[in-house]
């Protein structure tokens, strides 16, 4: 598992540090650093909680997504 933190985007809020149950992240000089990437089980809570969307995971299993609203998708397709 590779975790990349965009240092320019990270605001150093520490939410990922608090939220991760496996203590994958640590704040170093007000920037989040993935110090234990091998402990990551790929829940992606950090993606959801990060206000700056500064995180990127590579080599992760993306779970099936059944919940995407069909009608919203249809509308989006018309717009995009």
């Amino acid at each position: 598992m590779e975790i990349h933190v965009d240092k320019d985007a990270c605001v150093g809020c520490g939410l990922c540090v608090k939220d991760c149950p496996m203590h994958v992240y640590e704040l170093q000089d007000n920037v989040s650093v993935a110090v234990r990437p091998n402990n990551c089980m790929g829940c992606l809570s950090c993606h959801e909680i990060c206000p700056a969307q500064a995180l990127e995971h590579r080599g992760i299993y993306a779970a099936r997504r059944h919940y995407i609203d069909i009608k919203v998708c249809e509308m989006l397709r018309k717009v995009i």
Binding site: P21, M41, C43, L44, S45, H47, E48, I60, A63
Partner: peptide, 10 residues
Amino acid sequence: IVHTGPNACL
């Protein structure tokens, strides 16, 4: 439950 997330749960 140890942890719940949008992509996986431990």
